[in-house]
Amino acid sequence: MEMHVPLPSLAACGGAAAAAVVALLLLRLYFVLPGLGGGGAGVAAARRQQRRRRGKAVARGTGDTLLCVVLGSGGHTAEMARLLRGVDFERHRRRLYVVGSDDALSVGQVGELERGRPGDYRIAVVPRSRAVGQPWRSTPASAARCLARVVALMYRHRPDAVLCNGPANCVVVCLVALLPRILAIKRIPIVYVESFARVATLSLSGRIVYLLADRFVVQWPALAAQYPRAEYIPHLV
């Protein structure tokens, strides 16, 4: 007797398999994305925040981590330089600064903020995902170039954490930093600090990264009131 497998059923099998993969991926995303389920990341963060407020000791790593810092023009780099004064470079001994390709100013500022500090650092230049005022029509192509460069960069250096404060490139870096977590390879925590300039509304980057960041810090109370996962910490800069 001849085996007869009708084509539609093969296609149906394929379709079902694809649907299952997509469903699993979505489930995985739900569990790893801090802004959604994230394994109770929000609750844990709130608990840690409370501990710190009460002046209790915080858990510390062993040190010698590679910290990825995203810089960007328009005041972001200057503010990041202020934030980095609060970071123990003996603990985060290696720094990887991600700088936009048209941002020579930030390169100079890295030299200044790193002067006399322990450990070592390198600067990686990536194409801008979107320049200020760039037409949205040409944004996908420039974002793709930026994405390819950032993927290569993260694969080569494998940072232990990402710190960013709002330039457009940080959205790309955060998305790429989540890939190893989605694939259950490595958890790269993302810490986002919304700019001091944002008093009442989040920046566009902030609204996106709110879904991706493990810790989301705002510097004005009105933002914390609107975004429950945000930690309000005044006078950081």
Partner: peptide
């Protein structure tokens, strides 16, 4: 915050 997150 960075210390806490990298200690996890």
């Amino acid at each position: 915050i960075l210390d806490e997150e990298t200690a996890l």
